[in-house]
Design a protein around this nucleic acid. Structure first.
Length: 149
DNA sequence: GCCAACGTTGGC
DNA sequence: GCCAACGTTGGC
């Protein structure tokens, strides 16, 4: 079962909000590489929920993929900040997935903590210049992060 | 607010 | 297809 990491600005969607909602749509991904990862996701896959662009960036919890990727409605929504003027019902290049809350960590595993761990050296998140909002996580790294909770 | 790094766009 | 200019991400 593949593992993933997905970034969200907590002002947009925080792990606590997902906890309250139970389930929601993960939309607005506007990068082709990240979109391709969304399309590789399968029902039941787990992902680390990462808080970005906030006072304390880091891994805040775990979510689960529900079903598979489908065309992202926000690309066609006039009122959405994610509107893509070039997208149409017939040709919508963007994908979204539904996600369920699994767990909120008691304490966020912040970036400085993660960076200090030699066993996480291969984590894509920590690689220099990585700005992907959706990325795969190897099983060893998944286990290593869980051990830090 | 700054800036490094990367992605996208568009002229040629 | 190249590449400069511009836009975005995201940590600090």
């Amino acid at each position: 079962m593949p593992f993933w990491l997905m970034k969200s600005e907590p002002e947009e969607l925080a792990i606590s909000t997902l906890q309250k909602l139970g389930q929601t749509r993960w939309d607005g991904v506007r990068n082709y590489q990240a979109r391709n990862f969304l399309r590789e996701m399968r029902d039941g896959d787990l992902f680390f929920f990462y808080h970005s662009s906030c006072p304390r960036p880091g891994i805040a919890g775990i979510g689960r993929i529900v079903g598979e990727a489908y065309p992202d409605p926000s690309a066609l929504d006039q009122r959405s900040p994610y509107l893509d003027p070039k997208a149409s019902m017939e040709k919508n290049p963007w994908s979204a997935v539904d996600v369920r809350f699994v767990e909120a960590f008691a304490d966020i595993l912040d970036l400085t903590n993660l960076r200090g761990r030699p066993e996480l050296a291969d984590l894509a998140l920590l690689k220099k210049g990585n700005r992907l909002s959706v990325m795969p996580v190897a099983e060893e790294e998944w286990a290593a992060v869980l051990a830090l909770r």
